[in-house]
């Protein structure tokens, strides 16, 4: 037995106290959820007033027993993986200002699944490996002075079988709608009513800072998801919730020391599992790192994981003019260069 193995035997024992094991069914069911989340991210990133968005994330699980796969044969040591990237660039990505409408190109990709070896580039693809890919490609055209953006593209889902979906996007100021189709069939419509005043959008600071952000996702007649985010204190402290038509999905308290949400996010969540039990968790997000335990986002987006520490090496940054901010943020990060983010109207 090699010396390192003793450490791992100990660690394996320690980590095994918790019992969360992804199954191939859970990994398969994750694909449509990620497809939805990816389009929702695209919708939030590609706003008429914004110039570019860049995101990346890789979940780091050091021990093979943290995400051991459960099959009919038993429990297989290995690594659940989630690697994602998001890029949306307009021809005005440097914020210098451009003549005419801004054309944007986007690619949001994710590779997720389980493999018996951990990997950065090429998966090992062992006997029980299951690696799925979801990619969204899109083209947008925006007029920031009119707060208008239109987009469209397709989404490639490579899971048990390959499917190509296509989607449309229309955003006007605080309202945005995004339907997604598979051939002629509507998969879902995502509607956003982001009523909260956002300095990034050119809104002035007022009582409207305290209007809620609402999102309605219609999957089918009986399956509607609602999301609400309510500013409680100076666009730094938020209460958020997500509900299915009859059921509570999750609720969160989020604190951003700074309204651009770029420096840090502290989150406490409560999520409802499928068996009706509610469990609590939380996390901290830093510019390049996210550490979370039992977080509702990971339950939704990382194979219903719970009872394990999630460490994600990540990045998510958007630009508008010469200012920077995180996804869904109301204000830009303070900077010496940027004074007022959306100033294209004033220029003319």
């Amino acid at each position: 037995m090699r010396v390192e193995s003793y450490f791992f035997v100990f660690a394996v024992f320690f980590a095994n106290v918790f019992a969360w094991h992804p199954t191939s069914q859970i990994i398969e069911e994750q694909v449509p959820q990620t497809a939805f989340a990816q389009l929702s991210d695209f919708q939030n990133a590609a706003r008429p007033e914004y110039n570019a968005y860049l995101a990346a994330g890789i979940i780091y699980l050091p021990l093979p027993s943290q995400s051991a796969l459960s099959t009919e044969w038993g429990i297989h040591d290995g690594f659940a993986a989630r690697q994602r990237v998001g890029i949306w660039l307009t021809n005005d990505f440097d914020g210098e200002g451009s003549k005419g409408p801004a054309i944007g190109l986007g690619w949001f990709g994710e590779r997720q699944g389980w493999d018996n070896e951990d990997f950065l580039f090429l998966p090992h693809r062992g006997d029980f490996s299951q690696i799925n890919q979801i990619h969204t490609f899109g083209l947008t055209i925006a007029d920031s002075s009119k707060h208008l953006l239109f987009g469209g593209g397709f989404q490639y889902l490579n899971a048990e079988d390959e499917t190509v979906r296509w989607w449309l996007l229309g955003t006007w100021d605080r309202f945005s709608v995004m339907p997604s189709f598979h051939k002629g069939n509507l998969q879902f419509i995502n509607t956003q009513l982001y009523l909260q005043a956002r300095e990034l959008r050119g809104d002035k600071n007022s009582w409207q800072n305290y209007l809620p952000d609402l999102e309605f996702s219609f999957f089918s007649k009986d399956s509607v998801k609602m999301f609400i985010s309510q500013n409680i204190f100076k666009q730094r402290f938020y209460i958020e919730g997500a509900f299915w038509a009859k059921d509570f999905a999750w609720a969160a308290l989020k604190y951003y020391p700074e309204p651009s949400r770029l420096i840090m996010a502290l989150e406490a969540t409560a999520a409802q599992k499928e068996n009706g039990k509610i469990y609590y968790g939380g996390g901290i997000t830093l510019p390049f790192l996210r550490v979370a335990y039992n977080h509702a986002d990971d339950y939704e987006n990382f194979f219903k994981s719970m009872g394990i520490w999630i460490v994600e090496i990540r990045l998510a940054i958007g630009t508008s003019g010469s200012s920077f901010f995180a996804l869904k943020a109301p204000k830009a990060a303070p900077s010496e260069i940027s004074k007022s983010p959306v100033k294209k109207e004033d220029k003319e």
Partner: peptide
């Protein structure tokens, strides 16, 4: 530091038998 963490993030299989 970031690069080394990135590289190390997928090397457990070098020391653990799969």
């Amino acid at each position: 530091a970031l690069i080394s963490v990135l590289i190390l993030s997928s090397c457990t299989h070098w020391i653990v038998d799969t």
